[in-house]
Design a protein around this nucleic acid. Structure first.
Length: 334
DNA sequence: AATACTACATTTCC
DNA sequence: AGGAAATGTAGTAT
């Protein structure tokens, strides 16, 4: 019908020149589009185009051309290798995102993406406790065993046949164009492959993530994870995992002060042998908002289930409120 | 894929 | 230089 026709129109007209100051589609229109039309169109160029999918609560605008043009100059710096300690294998780009677009990209993503504040239960022994994730999260992507067909349907990666809907408990969402451009760019610069984009928003210094490693059951051995910072500077702490031996490992904890535009590529044995965290911080720049984007490659369906469980969950949608300058629960009738 | 709180020690800030 | 604030660490509760 008309919405499908409009999508095809924008596809066929996308490559030609377009005004750069056309208005962004209204929230109401984006919601309608996202609920009715699939995406994974060829990556167009018009500033009015949007990424749509039935799993999106609302459509996500394409990256504005002004940002996209400058992004093609990334990485803005050569990486520094951090591998002077046992099992440590990092590339540190300071920065990766060119300075001229760091602020615009941060503002764009905070304004246009939707986030969640996930709650979940863990049980340790007999006691079950509820965890309130101390950060805003969202995720897009699908593991190596599946892909989205051009209609946005989840199909088997090798046969191309539809994956029965009870294979995944979650509802996988394609990576929107604005993040997929950065994903491709990062693949080309690093030689690594990624099929997931996780986005965290640390609203203040009281948002954090405690020490953890990214689970190799989902990512395979020696996984590569690219982690971007936009917005406020935050400390990134790393420490070697405790070793079985009684004697202390000959490694010392590492502190990286991640600034806007920076990218850290964790690879080799880093995930299996080291822990990392973003600790709470008081005052100064670290008490302002920070967006973190990580790209990774999930190898198995369990990875997809896990990432949606802990980064989307089943709670309400949050969106950035520019007037109140904070994330607020988003009601779809507002 | 834990996080929050407390107490106390140590470091950094201004 | 020195008091305040922030941070680090260990233990505990949920």
């Amino acid at each position: 019908m008309s919405k499908r026709a409009r999508t095809l129109d924008s596809f066929f007209s996308a490559p030609v020149t377009k005004k750069s100051r056309l208005p962004t589609p209204s929230i109401a229109q984006r919601e309608t589009d996202a609920a009715t039309v699939n995406s994974q169109l060829p990556q167009g160029t018009a500033d009015t185009d949007v990424s749509k999918h039935p799993t999106y609560p609302l459509a996500i605008p394409y990256l504005p051309s002004g940002i996209r043009d400058i992004l093609n100059f990334a990485p803005a710096a050569e990486p520094r290798a951090l591998n002077d300690q046992p099992d440590l294998d990092l590339l540190y780009y300071q920065p990766y995102i060119p300075k001229e677009i760091q602020r615009d990209l941060y503002d764009f993503l905070r304004r246009e993406l939707f986030f969640y504040r996930v709650k979940y239960n863990i049980k340790r022994g007999p006691v079950e406790t509820q965890i309130n994730t101390p950060r805003f999260t969202t995720v897009f992507g699908l593991d190596h065993l599946s892909r989205f067909d051009p209609e946005g349907l989840v199909v088997d990666a090798s046969t191309g046949r539809p994956v029965p809907k009870d294979v995944y408990k979650c509802s996988p969402r394609p990576i929107p164009q604005c993040l997929d451009l950065l994903r491709t760019l990062t693949e080309n610069a690093t030689g690594c492959k990624f099929n997931f984009a996780l986005v965290n928003y640390y609203a203040s210094g009281s948002d954090s993530i405690s020490y953890h490693s990214d689970d190799e059951r989902f990512l395979g051995p020696e996984p590569a994870i690219a982690s971007f910072t936009l917005g406020a500077k935050r400390d990134f702490l790393m420490k070697h995992k405790p070793t079985p031996e009684a004697h202390p490992s000959e490694t010392k904890p590492l502190k990286l002060s991640l600034a806007s535009g920076d990218m850290v590529l964790m690879k080799g044995l880093t995930q299996s042998r080291w822990l990392h965290s973003i600790p709470k911080r008081k005052g100064g720049e670290a008490d302002k908002g920070r967006i973190n984007i990580t790209f990774r490659r999930a190898m198995v369906r369990g990875g997809t289930e896990n990432y949606y469980r802990y980064n989307v969950g089943d709670g309400e949608v949050y969106r950035w409120d520019e007037d109140r300058r904070e994330m607020r629960p988003w009601k779809d009738d507002q």
